[in-house]
Design a protein around this nucleic acid. Structure first.
Lengths: 318, 318
DNA sequence: ACGCAAGAGGCCAGATCCTGACCTCAATGC
DNA sequence: GCATTGAGGTCAGGATCTGGCCTCTTGCGT
């Protein structure tokens, strides 16, 4: 085995177990003890912190250092990471969506097919994590493909189902992925329409990396997020939920998570603001808090609450 | 730069961008083109798939191959991975908890302090992901510390707050972490009480790796999961929710996620079974589905539903 | 059709480094 | 104190690596 291959193996071994007796490492790597010590020294020179314990039952140990060493992952671990990042990218964390997609792209692009299959299988299982993931969920494969195309300035072909229209085939120069309000958007230059467009990622299907690269253009205005938000103006309104609750802000904040704004409003009361597509989520939150409240808007929420309240009462009485 | 260091750099470069012109790689690594080609060849010998495009605008590209290459991560990416795994380990995925903790342990153990701090900061932000994470959440640091101790057969000291009792200090030989019903348990041999115990991880605080290793004992019965379940028998009952809904099983399943059993029960109806600590979650699910239902058990759920239903109706009318 | 750019790879001479062996120290736990 | 295990200096021989030079091959643009 060559030296570099041996270093990678050593790194991998040191990551799976905490302590390794020097002799065992030497045996596994098929080198003498002296060479192993030199390998350890090399690792240290590379900036990784390898602790050593002397005496009986001594051994080597890779520790947290100044930089993260290249991670050598088992199959299962890689799948777990991909699945975890997938939910993080779907917005379950907040503020971490873009980085999650970036990391996810890196992992997925390098995953052998067998692992990718396992990831997809698990993804379908967790695709219905519950009602709070309102709206159509995004396919991780689509998302990572788009991210990769953006990163590498690669021409992209995709099918897009614009709202209320039939599916069209597009050839675009991807520019940037934007995560906004629990949704993903792709800002890209449409090669056929010769203009900039933003695409809702959950409406994109069958994206294909053409392998053809292009020279990136400048987005007018430069700010991709602003560009997407601009498009919103013309979109039909979603529900702007405004409610005043007779409950401590902390309680409500705990119930709503980070998908709504909660501000104190006087003694033991608070105001809740959410912008949603569906009324199910606010209904759930209000039911969960279980305290009296006043709906300021929208009117539809009042109707829905009355309906659900009746069903609950009636069913409970039966 | 040594050859092995250069190989790691090359691997890292190939992971950040898709295409790299050979000459640019050579410049960055400060070697001649010939040597770069040899480095690429070495990578291929190690089993990684490096694609090359010839001609104008050609370049190298690391692709998915038979095995996952060691991942070289940016700071942000590592944090995203840790946060994602953290939520996966908390049970948001199902069936992946143990692997997630394993991967998380690996990453966290190697993370420089600065990254760990950022992870903790983000974790606190996402600590209240909403009502569905019923019960006290588990500290990722505690969890990974315990996991590491199990993996490395390392003697552990910890503080434990048994139910209704004061905090006691323990010295244990950790055996295995078990994820059961959205909770984590540590099965360990208590050195002072000379017997096997299972500890609820959310009640463990200040775990310390002593660095002292021990010879693993055999758990009587051998099955750690069974051991934890045994302990449950003596626990006070939680709520066993049994409800029959006039709604398709698929709808209900979607609302409840994987925290309950849903089975078809005749035409367009289904039965829901959940075992919970708090009634908030089933109330939410039922409010979310919004279809008529019959509560079979427990009686407390009926009361709670009546109360919430009234609040909703009254508040909606105001 | 042609030529250019960029990767593939054989060959060579010189320099570098790597290895294993041997030895002496330095900690650690019994 | 003694056995065990890591640290590391030195040395000689050999393996490996490097850069330069060459020839092929393959895409792409003119």
């Amino acid at each position: 085995m060559s030296t570099s291959a041996r270093m990678l193996s050593l790194l991998s071994l040191l990551q799976t177990h905490r302590y390794w007796p020097g002799e065992e490492l030497a045996t596994r790597l098929e080198v003498s003890g002296r060479t192993l010590r030199r390998d350890i020294e090399r690792l240290r020179d590379l900036g990784y912190v390898v602790d050593a314990t002397r005496g009986v039952a001594g051994g080597y140990q890779l520790r947290a250092g100044g930089q993260l060493p290249p991670l050598v992952l088992e199959d299962d671990e890689a799948v777990a990471i991909a699945v975890g990042l997938r939910t993080a990218a779907a917005g379950s964390v907040g503020g971490l969506e873009e980085t999650s997609v970036q990391a996810l792209t890196k992992v997925v692009a390098l995953m052998p097919t067998r692992l990718r299959r396992r990831m997809d299988a698990l993804a379908s299982q967790t695709d219905a994590p519950g009602p709070w993931s309102a709206g159509p969920s995004v396919d991780a494969r689509v998302l990572t493909t788009l991210a990769q195309a953006c990163r590498d300035d690669e021409l992209l072909e995709l099918d897009y189902a614009a709202r209320g229209a039939e599916v069209t085939h597009r050839r675009v120069e991807p520019h940037r992925l934007v995560s906004l309000g629990r949704r993903w958007y792709l800002v890209a230059h449409d090669r056929d329409r010769h203009d900039w467009r933003s695409f809702r990622v959950d409406r994109v299907s069958a994206p294909v990396l053409t392998g053809q690269r292009f020279r990136p253009r400048d987005l007018p205005g430069g700010d991709a997020v602003a560009f997407v938000e601009q498009g919103f103006r013309r979109m039909p309104q979603r529900y702007a939920v405004r409610v005043r609750l007779e409950a401590p802000a902390a309680t409500v904040r705990w119930a709503v998570g980070h998908w709504g704004e909660v501000v104190e409003d006087g003694d033991g009361a608070c105001r809740l603001e959410m912008n949603v597509d569906s009324l199910q989520w606010p209904v759930m939150v209000l039911a969960q808090v279980g305290a009296p409240f006043v709906v300021e808007s929208p009117a539809e929420l009042r109707d829905e609450l009355a309906r659900v309240g009746e069903v609950l009462q009636a069913s409970a009485a039966s």
